[in-house]
Design a binder for these strands. Sequence first.
DNA 1: CGTTGCATTGAGGAAAATCAAGTTGAGTGG
DNA 2: CCACTCAACTTGATTTTCCTCAATGCAACG
Lengths: 221, 221
Amino acid sequence: MPVGLNENEIHVLGEVVSHKRKIQRGGYLHRAGSKFQSLYAIRSGFLKTCILEQDGRQQVTGFHMTGELLGLDAISTEIHTCDAVALEDSEVCEIPFAKLEEISRTIPSLMHHFHKIMSREIVRDHGVMLLLGSMKAEERLASFLLNLSRRFLIRGYSEYNFNLRMTREEIGSYLGLKLETVSRAFSKLQDENIIRVDNKHIQINDMTRLRMKMGNSSCIT
Amino acid sequence: MPVGLNENEIHVLGEVVSHKRKIQRGGYLHRAGSKFQSLYAIRSGFLKTCILEQDGRQQVTGFHMTGELLGLDAISTEIHTCDAVALEDSEVCEIPFAKLEEISRTIPSLMHHFHKIMSREIVRDHGVMLLLGSMKAEERLASFLLNLSRRFLIRGYSEYNFNLRMTREEIGSYLGLKLETVSRAFSKLQDENIIRVDNKHIQINDMTRLRMKMGNSSCIT
DNA sequence: CGTTGCATTGAGGAAAATCAAGTTGAGTGG
DNA sequence: CCACTCAACTTGATTTTCCTCAATGCAACG
């Protein structure tokens, strides 16, 4: 979160971030239906958020990594609308939302920054809607891989080699595809020598052609 | 917007809302790429927002009616990410965002309310993602009609009879379907006597069965 | 070393896209 | 007022894409 804040502001913000929480792989950060108190800033690890329908239908709404903020959806009703599950051992900072609002009154730049973060989430969701609404399986997967790649790069990891933390089924849920379709799309991209797949490990051989696979360049954040 | 504000607060907010703007049917409230200055509260009318890709791909990201707030996506980069087009003659209030932030510092309930609105938009988008990711054509259309119906009801119109402001193609874009598929889904629902379709006019004959068509009840806002 | 969960692959089928007419209705101009 | 145009809609035939079902592979783990 601390971007565009001066040292004093960061100090004040530090007061708010009450305590850290560790979540084991497979553990829940929060569940749909639970009371909302705090936002969570991811310190390390990897989580997914998903909504679960009464009829069993499930949809992964996002994969989240270090530096991202979780819980924004719950502000509106003060009830979490989704589950947040750790896909690997993770650590988060709890940010009591009431305190955040209080402090942001005295630190305009903090408030503004927070608004930008919420807005970015909306933009991201619109990107996913475009993906789900108008792309074919292979395009969706290409888009997904490029998005991951970029986020790893930003965090100082290789953009060409990384490990997926999620299963094919979770990828499929996020992309609106069945796991078999995801698997086939991986195989196809591998056959074309665009990527190399070894179980959860992905190597991107030809970034340019991967980008071409999706017809558009507006990546999802 | 004014919900949960006292009279004084509303008065102050009134100062912010600088001027009203009329947009003719077919006209643009804002275009993707244009500089963001203000949010827009819809006073009357009906608009769509859509993102347009370089390759011509288009996605309607939402249909918006009286009382809703437009422009939230642009806060993050201060550039509008989508077009907003009036589907009928509409009137909006311009709310300079810088002023809104400034005033919300002195009116905590206004700030909190604004956060809820942004959060609700995120929840809505997640609902659309679920729809696009896991529903069939007919389920999507049922979900869409029920959502419209509810929003008309809230605004004091009939939940059983209403006119669509958008074309089949726009519905299709929003729902991730082609216009022919939308048309067929309409016909199918009509054949089953669940709705009556006459061009843009929709009559819902059997709300219960329409609800059953979509397997879940979490409506999109 | 069998179990278990995840992944791959193939065959067949269902859903939606695409292609192709035709229809309707609103608006325009003769 | 009628013919004309154009855009939006409907419907049918065909093709593509993805889903479903089923078999198999494969690594991790007790």
